[in-house]
Design a protein around this nucleic acid. Structure first.
Lengths: 216, 216
DNA sequence: GTTTACATACATACACGAATGTATGTATTT
DNA sequence: AAATACATACATTCGTGTATGTATGTAAAC
């Protein structure tokens, strides 16, 4: 076969990423060969090895495609135009809205949770997840600390621990959500699922009041 | 090599299970070959194929070894000699105590969370996890329903949703716990991490009072 | 109490497919 | 003409499953 134009080449690159994402999600990362992906894309391994150096490189490239969406999510978390409690509340809902509306994020999240091993060969993936987790927790902690300064937290709540708890709750809910893809229970009752933890952290449902943020 | 006595054979069977558990945890299930396990155990693949039919069979056998401990955990959850709120509180702590004290449970839990794919070839594993999750949630829901009848729940709390939330929180905390094996933060502050959700579900810290259980 | 016959508990060897990485071919672009 | 964007072909390695070898335990026959 013959050469394509630059645009067409870029197109096949994205086709490979899309296809790999799909097959990884269906069969698991370790269980899929590059031949599987190439065949599913209607190409050969030659195309893959042209665009990527190996399977891990392909996998990383495919994961990196959702970084922008996640950064938007985090940016909103630090938007100080609304009070920290409400910000956390909205952030939680935005996460699941994104998961619900964006199939790519859903698949990649699913691959990370269920479709790949995070040890041995894929250890760098685990390290990345650890650092990402710590960054995320740090941001939550920052917002919670801000809430504490505004007297929004209950007396015995420690921002750091509350951040770990909240982050774990999110992770656990996402996992349950992914396990039963077609069950809409979590999506339909997200507020009721998150409320108890917010109730236990904040005073008097302050997260439901879109009060402007005091001095941060 | 020659034949061993029945006891010695049973011993090598357990040696294979122990070794496989260790290697699976270090390298991941898919990334581990039977030759790896045999070598680590100081045996050959012949020994593995004698005791198990293939890798999946070995893996299942190794997972099944922790069932008794988990059943004890669940049995205590349904022990009606203490009130449901306290029962849930103690159950949560027992879970993490078990994870902390029992290295085998820690490894197998770790393998399920981080060291194996749950789709494709390992799909039966996922199905098992789903049904196990549903059973676990059903038990939590049952205890929460019992608490509701005793007026221990807050007004707007639905037992089913609270069970999902609680179960997800546990799963998320375990995941965070496994990611940072040597960080004792979660283990040392478990009460502070669980408290907010209990605060949001139950009235007036009733889970801290070891009141006898009313009629169930 | 020996001897014998068979089952056991592995080790070893072999055959096969699968997956990878690379080298090369080839028709277009540029 | 040279680089590009792949397809094709090849060599090699790795993992599995099975077949076979073999020395010992075990129980029954005698």
């Amino acid at each position: 076969m013959a050469r394509k134009t630059r645009e067409e080449a870029e197109q096949t690159r994205h086709l490979l990423l899309d296809t790999a994402e799909q097959v990884f999600w269906e069969k698991g990362v370790a269980a899929t060969s590059l031949a599987d992906i190439a065949a599913a894309a209607g190409l050969t391994r030659g195309a893959i090895y042209w665009h990527f150096s190996n399977k891990l490189d392909l996998f990383n490239a495919l994961c990196d495609r959702i970084i922008p969406e996640l950064e938007i999510l985090d940016a909103r978390l630090l938007d100080s135009s609304i009070n920290p409690a409400t910000r956390l509340w909205l952030h939680g809902h935005s996460m699941f809205a994104l998961l619900h509306d964006n199939p790519r994020i859903r698949r990649i999240c699913g691959i990370h949770h269920l479709g790949c091993e995070q040890v041995g060969e894929m250890a760098p993936l685990l390290l990345e997840q650890i650092s990402w987790t710590q960054e995320k927790q740090a941001k939550l902690q920052q917002v919670l600390h801000c809430a504490q300064e505004q007297q929004l937290l209950r007396a015995d709540v420690d921002p750091k621990l509350a951040a770990i708890g909240l982050h774990s709750l999110y992770g656990g809910l996402i996992h349950s959500w992914l396990l039963a893809q077609d069950d809409r229970t979590i999506h339909n009752n997200l507020s009721a699922l998150l409320s108890p933890y917010f109730e236990g952290i904040f005073k008097e449902r302050c997260w439901l009041q879109p009060l402007p943020c005091a001095a941060e």
